[in-house]
Amino acid sequence: MKQTPSQTVGPYFAYGLTPEQYLYSFKSLANNELVAIEDEQIIVKGRVFDGEGNVIPDAMLEIWDAKNNLFGRFGTGTEKDNSFVFKTQKPGSIDGQAPYLSVILFMRGQLIHSYTRIYFSDEDLNTTDTTLLQIEESRRSTLIAQKQEKFYEFNIYMQGDNETVFFEI
């Protein structure tokens, strides 16, 4: 059988996919708080930029932590600066590789979704991780969330000099 073709999520996904975040009266099946604060919660936040450097206010991110079986979803249309925010725990290492979160990115203007990963700047395993080493050094940093005082910052650039590495999986 042939695959069903992908189509864009469009600009109006919020009341179907992230209803509670956008204050629609429909239950959300997933949100951005994957673990409670007492579970060594970390915050990952950032923004998504288009090819002219404009912040994208209608993207939706999903994150998947296979190690801990955690899934989250958040749209960039509700925070003041159009950032996404996830409260989760640091994923552990799998098979000695550096810990990361898998990211699925959707937005108007993407006929098919994009895959990327969030690694963490304070992990020594980054220097030996086979996936990171597979990527040319100048682009590797686009996959690494930078540890700030209270959160990890991870910005996604769809295009340009800092274009984020996207994966084919």
Binding site: Q134, Q159, V165, E168
Partner: peptide, 9 residues
């Protein structure tokens, strides 16, 4: 302005 331009890895 939203499509990645570099080859996917």
């Amino acid at each position: 302005l939203r499509a990645p331009t570099k080859p996917l890895v």
